[in-house]
């Protein structure tokens, strides 16, 4: 940890270089996250082409209203996160804390809706496994849809939980005045992470809820 009066760590030439290094490292991490989710998206595309009718039928059991609402909630949370970084850059501590808490709130709303949706799938025997039931001859193919649905949204929700944890830590540190206009990298990096998770949902929502809705 740097001293309060030091604007950058000794291995860096300048605060600017320190910030750029942090950003670059975060983007390398996000690049592997893209590949991590990319494999699942690829599996989805392949199986959707193989079992087109089953995927269309299974997709109809997802509630579009929940998906659309959650998309709006996540986009709003990205806005509050961007405004939190903005406040950190200007050194407005109270505004920063407020927007971080707003982002945590919106993230929690998203996860709450997800819990309602998952509960609905449990009740209707749409969770892959011994109790999976789906009307019609395409049961096993529909089960693959729901396997991918739970794998993709589950992994996404796990990222959201981690994100909420990061934000809670930022609130703790921000209230103690750890961030200044010279040093706010943790806020900016958590922001990048949060926006990336938003982007994953921007693709998950249409792929799972919208395609073959008509």
């Amino acid at each position: 940890m740097s001293e309060a009066h030091a604007s950058h760590l000794h291995q860096f030439d300048s605060p600017e270089q320190q910030r750029e290094s942090a950003s670059l490292g975060m983007w390398v991490f996000i690049a592997q996250e893209i590949m991590f989710f990319g494999g699942l998206f690829l599996a989805y595309v392949v199986y959707r082409n193989l079992y087109h009718d089953a995927f269309a039928a299974a997709s109809h059991h997802l509630d579009l209203r929940f998906g659309a609402f959650n998309t709006a909630v996540l986009i709003a949370s990205s806005l509050t996160m961007a405004l939190a970084v903005h406040a950190a850059q200007l050194g407005h501590r109270k505004v920063l804390v407020s927007f971080l808490i707003a982002t945590i709130f919106l993230g929690s709303v998203f996860l709450g809706v997800k819990v309602v949706e998952y509960h609905d799938k449990f009740v209707h025997h749409l969770v892959p496994g011994a109790n999976f039931q789906f009307e019609g001859p395409l049961e096993h193919q529909a089960e693959i849809f729901y396997s991918l649905y739970f794998a993709m949204t589950g992994l996404h929700a796990l990222h959201m939980v981690v994100g909420v944890g990061l934000l809670a830590w930022l609130v703790y540190a921000a209230t103690r005045g750890r961030y200044t206009p010279e040093y706010y990298s943790p806020v900016e990096m958590s922001g990048l992470y949060w926006h990336f998770v938003d982007i994953v949902w921007i693709f998950l929502f249409p792929f799972l809820y919208l395609i073959s809705r008509h």
């Binding site: 990205s78 961007a82 922001g191 990048l192 926006h195 990336f196 938003d198 982007i199 693709f203």
Partner: peptide
């Protein structure tokens, strides 16, 4: 949408 998020929200 993703491009807008990357360019502006992610700076």
């Amino acid at each position: 949408k993703a491009t807008l998020v990357v360019l502006y929200f992610m700076h």
